[in-house]
Deep mutational scan, measured.
Amino acid sequence: QVNIAPGSLDKALNQYAAHSGFTLSVDASLTRGKQSNGLHGDYDVESGLQQLLDGSGLQVKPLGNNSWTLEP
């Protein structure tokens, strides 16, 4: 069960990665100043990332080996 409060997208993504045990490689300029609506409930990694990114204009991309990145 994930419980991440709304706020900074950077912070939300870092909390989610730490909670879910995956690696997220992101260029900080992509997420700077963006906000997230947070995340509450049970999600697989990709669904949770998509939910956190909702409205940010960013997309999640798998890199393999439980690693992910973001792209515009």
Rank of each mutant, 00 (worst) to 15 (best):
S25F: 15
I4Y: 03
V45S: 05
K61F: 08
E46I: 14
V2D: 02
G7E: 02
Y16A: 02
T31F: 03
E71R: 00
A28R: 11
A17H: 03
G48S: 04
N37G: 11
S36I: 03
L24Y: 09
S8H: 06
S67Q: 12
L53N: 00
I4N: 00
N14K: 15
G48V: 05
S47T: 12
L49G: 01
S56Q: 06
A28Q: 11
D27H: 07
L30M: 08
S20D: 07
Q35D: 08
Q50D: 07
N65T: 09
G48D: 02
L58P: 01
I4W: 01
A5L: 11
P72V: 13
L39E: 01
N65F: 08
K34G: 03
L53Q: 02
G57H: 05
K61L: 09
L52S: 00
D10E: 13
L49P: 00
S36C: 09
S36H: 05
L24W: 06
S47H: 10
E46P: 10
H40T: 11
H40Q: 13
Q50W: 11
H19N: 10
Q51C: 13
D54H: 14
N3P: 03
A12I: 09
G57N: 08
S25C: 15
P6M: 06
A5G: 10
Q59S: 11
G64H: 03
L30I: 08
Q59G: 08
D54G: 09
G21V: 00
S36Y: 01
L58M: 03
G7V: 05
G41E: 01
F22A: 09
Q50A: 12
D10Q: 13
A18I: 12
G41S: 01
W68M: 05
S47I: 09
L13T: 01
S8V: 05
H19Q: 15
A17K: 07
V26E: 03
Y43I: 04
L13C: 06
K61P: 02
P6E: 05
A12D: 02
D27Q: 06
A12Y: 02
Y43A: 03
L52P: 00
Q15Y: 09
Q1V: 13
G33A: 04
A5E: 11
P62M: 12
S67W: 10
G38H: 01
S47Q: 11
E71G: 06
N14F: 14
V60I: 12
A5N: 08
Q59A: 11
Q50P: 00
L13G: 01
G7Q: 10
G7K: 03
L49E: 01
S29H: 11
L52R: 00
L49M: 07
G7P: 00
G38F: 00
D10A: 12
Y43N: 03
S36P: 01
G57Q: 04
S25T: 14
V2G: 04
S25L: 15
L52N: 01
H19P: 04
A28S: 11
L24P: 06
L70Q: 05
Q50E: 10
G55V: 02
Q51Y: 09
G57V: 02
I4H: 00
Q15F: 08
L30T: 04
G38S: 01
T69S: 12
Y43L: 05
L53S: 03
Q35L: 14
L49I: 08
W68S: 04
G41Y: 03
G38W: 03
G41T: 01
D42I: 15
Q1F: 15
S29G: 10
S56G: 00
I4A: 01
D44L: 06
L53K: 00
N66A: 04
H19R: 08
L52K: 00
L49D: 00
R32S: 11
K61R: 12
L24E: 05
A28K: 11
S29W: 11
L13P: 00
Q50C: 14
A28V: 10
G41K: 02
N14S: 14
N66P: 05
Q50V: 12
S8P: 15
